[in-house]
Amino acid sequence: MSEGIEELRLALGRERYLADEGLATVLFLALRLRRPLLVEGEPGVGKTELAKAVAAATGARLLRLQCYEGIDLHSALYDWDYPRQLLHLRAGEPGELYSERFLLQRPLLEALRSDPERPTVLLIDELDRADDEFEAFLLEFLSDFQITIPEIGVIEAATPPVVIITSNRTRELHEALKRRCLYHWIEHPDLAREIAIARARLPEAPAALVSQVCAFVQELRWLDLYRLPGVGETLDWTQSLDVLGRDGLDAATADKTLGALVKTREDLERIRGGGLQELIDRAAERRGPPAA
């Protein structure tokens, strides 16, 4: 592995984000080549956390644009300050109505105009929730790091921000957008990595508990569940058990606290129906995937 990549991985590690080699390499390239990074993956694999960790590791400011259905130009890029414009009009003051003076910055514009001394990480979260027309607004921004405001002109970035886009793949993003990005698919972490993540995030939890919980969760991911628990749920559950003063996993406590880990009734029934003790035992001797 190149030095730069290892360095980046360590820097993320200091922010308690443990990236695997693939993610570190892709991220390294995104930073070096100044390309936006599109990350996709199951809910709970740490897509949003990644952006936060990158911002913290590089000492950058994090700007977050949460996408939702119906998000438009004026809540993402820029808007005009209409009340002030109206007042201005009524007062009959001289001066252009559509000028910098009345321009309101939204996250994307803010990312372009940020302080050159302090880099910016722009997180465009859950882009698949926005409707596909919105992706078209992003194309100019993503390829040239500039925005065209018809009344003013082109606004370019002095220092291009680091852009991280996440998607849950509820719909396929447009090829034109993907072409402008580097692409990475984040998988659920393997056992060793998940233990390492839990240790880093919850240093106060007993080590035995952490490894038992992680093995149990890994075991669950092989079950046929509607909603697989993510790393976030692993941490929640570990914390719950820790708060209850447990230093190991037992069936009775697991049964009472399972709601922190599994959040669908059908899945809960399935896990309980299969026998918690058996799952715990299987997790204890877990090495590879169990035979289906």
Partner: peptide, 17 residues
């Protein structure tokens, strides 16, 4: 940008593009 002798790096670079 990468060490071309390292298969993993080259693999991920190619895959993400």
């Amino acid at each position: 940008e990468l060490d071309l002798r390292d298969r993993t790096s080259v693999y991920w670079a190619a895959r993400c593009t």
